[in-house]
Amino acid sequence: MDSVVETHGLTREFTRRGKGAKLLTRSALRAVDDLSITIAPGDSVGYIGANGAGKSTTIKMLVGILVPTSGTVRTCGLDPLKQRRELAARVGVVFGQRSQLWWDLPVRESFEILSAIHRLPPSRSRARTDELVDRLELGEFLATPVRQLSLGQRMRAEVAAALLHQPQLVILDEPTIGLDVLSKQRLREFLIQERATHGTTLLLTTHDMGDIERLCDRVLVVDHGRVVHDGDLDGLARAAGAGRTLVVDLTGPTADLGGIPHTAHLGSEVDGARQRLGFDSERTTAAAVLAAVSERAEVRDLSIEEPDIEDVVRRIYHARR
């Protein structure tokens, strides 16, 4: 089957005018630089990078709301600029920072309006709305005007709104931003289910490593508009140097636990009763580090911290320079 997203040499420049005495000089900033990516049907792709790396610019070109400077883009087999309306029927976009609901109207009515906009037959609209209400647990606030919803409730309603027409490709731009742990959890579970049931292709940008780990089989890392990593999650961890952190709570004050192989002492709290040890999971294991710690002190409790997405991105950027 044809790919859902296909770009060749996709480039977008923004002209910037200089300030003060340089007002008349213009410089071109390449937000997206010669980007060639392919996303197959059913893929779930995390698109990550620092702020300003070109993530949003790429998404805007994929859905036809920004004109590329050069290169080609096909989304769901369509030209996003010339076939905007056909594409809108096949793509659902969730912007964490923008609303597509009718602010003054009850949530249910936004779904009715969107059903009409997508010309869904009433029977299909009803079945799909029921499915989404059930899976995203929207029932208790369906009659509430959107402006009175909490952020977590609103985001769930936003996701339902974007997926009402059962799009083939769902693009989520920072979908979990500002959500509490429980809301994030619910949203992720829903997306996993949606993918399993309908074979939906997902493309998401996020700053949350949890989103990537739970939702994505493939990760694209961009830097200055170029893809610097394209692979699965393990590959990402390897590329990033797989820095995980073991946090141990000891029974009493203890001297710094330095000198454990492939491990770096990152810090001590409460006179050394809690210590943080960074280790390279390619060369050693959490068990080996724990064993080495146990020889020197009695461990009361422990936890392992995964690298956060900023860390991963920073490490990948660093490795390239």
Partner: peptide, 16 residues
Amino acid sequence: VAIHPYIRLLKAGFRQ
């Protein structure tokens, strides 16, 4: 049958 999109939007504006 499905309500025409633009008629539904007219009603949405009215309700808003």
